[in-house]
């Protein structure tokens, strides 16, 4: 394991579980120190609300989602929209012709008015934040199927989007913890990515507003380009530590 990976795992143990509705959360890269070089900066953006949306882009559900989001679901391959305002701030990434990833500020619990963009604050190794209340949504005690369609503890964003999709055929699934986000920025960010990503990352080809699912090193990722040479790398949580170590290693020549 390259430097930067913690020797041990999360500092769980006796006392980390609070019995009364609050529990310690831990993101896949919690405990990994951010990297702040002149040419490369890297940090996890933990605990984002992420919702997988499947729908016919011309169907009723997509229309409902567009109305709620205040913008159509992007239909141009390899693009994303956002952040969308007038709704809990979120961005909508094209994943496929009937598949999008909606990413909002704070995932994990149904809560109103989470910190706008708070999840995108720099850092990523902050104290695990037990934010919001638990037990909302479908997480009623001891029940069987509630007839609702949420999962226990799912994000408020998911619930809202599901409501917006209405009765049309769609799948709105909370996947907030399925992936985490690594932000990679700086003038050498593209160079670091090019060590492991087969995409053409030239600014004319992969500029702000573009995104693509592809491979980075040996992990599948969703890569999105933002302003100021900043990239968001969405990676499956189980691969996050590997990818972090790989990125740190790939950045060796640019961190000098």
């Amino acid at each position: 394991m390259a430097e930067g990976a913690p020797e041990t795992g999360p500092e769980t143990g006796p006392g980390t579980v609070a019995g009364a509705g609050r529990a310690v959360r831990r993101s896949p890269l919690g405990g990994f120190a951010p990297v702040a070089g002149e040419r490369v900066r890297m940090a996890e953006t933990p605990f984002l609300a992420q919702v997988d949306v499947r729908a016919d882009p011309l169907g009723e559900a997509a229309a409902g989602l567009a109305a709620a989001l205040g913008t159509p679901l992007p239909v141009r391959p390899g693009t994303y929209t956002g952040p969308v305002t007038g709704y809990p701030p979120c961005s909508v990434f094209w994943l496929g012709p009937d598949k999008w990833l909606v990413v909002g500020a704070e995932g994990g619990t149904p809560q109103e008015g989470g910190p706008p963009g708070g999840g995108a604050a720099a850092g990523g190794s902050g104290p695990p934040g037990g934010s919001g209340t638990l037990g909302g949504g479908a997480a009623a005690g001891g029940s069987g199927p509630s007839g609702g369609s949420g999962a226990p503890g799912e994000s408020g964003l998911a619930a809202r989007l599901r409501a917006a999709a209405g009765d049309g055929h769609a799948a709105v699934t909370d996947v907030s913890a399925q992936r985490t986000v690594i932000r990679l920025a700086g003038p050498a960010a593209r160079d670091v990515l090019a060590h492991g990503c087969p995409l053409d990352l030239h600014p004319r080809v992969f500029g702000p507003g573009t995104c693509a699912r592809s491979t980075l090193a040996r992990a599948d990722v969703l890569l999105a380009a933002g302003e100021d040479e900043e990239f968001q790398i969405f990676v499956r949580s189980s691969f996050a530590a590997y990818l972090w170590a790989w990125l740190l290693d790939a950045a060796t020549e640019y961190l000098r």
Partner: peptide, 20 residues
């Protein structure tokens, strides 16, 4: 760079740290 720890992705669960 596909050597040593980076030879192949190591996938871990959220509880991996405890196991270690």
């Amino acid at each position: 760079r596909d050597r040593g720890a980076l030879h192949d992705p190591v996938r871990v669960t959220p509880m991996h740290g405890w196991h270690v």
